[in-house]
Design a protein around this nucleic acid. Structure first.
Lengths: 141, 141
DNA sequence: GTCAGTGCAAAGAATTTGCAATTAG
DNA sequence: CTAATTGCAAATTCTTTGCACTGAC
């Protein structure tokens, strides 16, 4: 959805000096191909389709490493499991359909601005933020 | 902070037909007295000060029951543990100081309105939402 | 060659659950 | 009386870790 073409993760990893192993290559491909917000179990499943035998601990470790480097973003939506998405060029927020679990990305410059204002009012600066709208389809009568 | 006097939880529980046991009474007192967002371990600690011997499983079960009934709200801030606050009369959002862990409540009608607008634009209605600003003290100068 | 990365199984951390005993209503 | 609640320990679920081995650079 909000997914402009950008440099593949594998190149970013090389730049940062990570070793490109077979397992890692597949994990990065899966991440690049994802346009949703999979959790580790789902990632592991997708990796397994391309290359069986990759241990889930490796997926966990890779995600942690990528998150440390800021190459992916971690989320915790309603279900209590970590989910990931390749770091977007521009920040966006999430709208979660509670009936289907579907996640839609959106962005509101106006809300971004108001957030800054609020933080400032309290004497802080924003490190990061998270706005999640849990929604259901509108009954159009 | 944003904590207008309201009906004690114990009365709300009676109205909903929950049995008031000794353990539950203490837990509810602790919740009523809290003006922060404690996790279960912290609640259990506070309960233990008033009445030793209450099992932490009881605290978990009670919090789940209260949340089901909408008498308290669950949050998951940065640290991956569930936290609770008595359900406020009016919705508010949170500003979390990442350096101290302190949580400040705030409300912006304008942001609320923009959220509605966005949900509507996508054809949804909001079930609930969560806005969290992770902040740090502003370096003045 | 060296050290980051991996698999595996075991450990952790947070939360839930089965069950027998207790107790509020 | 009896169905809800509790304590306790065991089970679940998700994630991390120790360690010996492998392989990228």
């Amino acid at each position: 959805m909000t997914k402009p073409k950008q440099e593949p993760l594998i190149d970013l990893c090389r730049q940062r000096g990570l070793r490109i192993t077979g397992q890692r290559r597949v994990i990065l491909q899966v991440l690049d191909a994802a346009d949703d917000h999979p959790n580790v179990e789902e990632l592991h499943r997708r990796v397994g389709q391309r290359e069986p035998g990759v241990n889930i601990a490796t997926v966990y470790r890779t995600m942690n490493k990528l998150a440390e480097l800021g190459l992916i973003e971690r989320h915790m939506f309603g279900d209590g499991r970590l989910r990931y998405e390749p770091a977007p060029d521009e920040h966006h927020d999430h709208l979660i359909n509670v009936e289907t679990g579907e996640v839609i990305e959106f962005r509101s410059d106006e809300i971004e601005r108001l957030q800054e204002e609020i933080a400032q009012k309290y004497g802080f600066e924003i490190v990061s933020h998270k706005l999640e709208l849990y929604v259901k389809p509108r009954k159009t009568r």
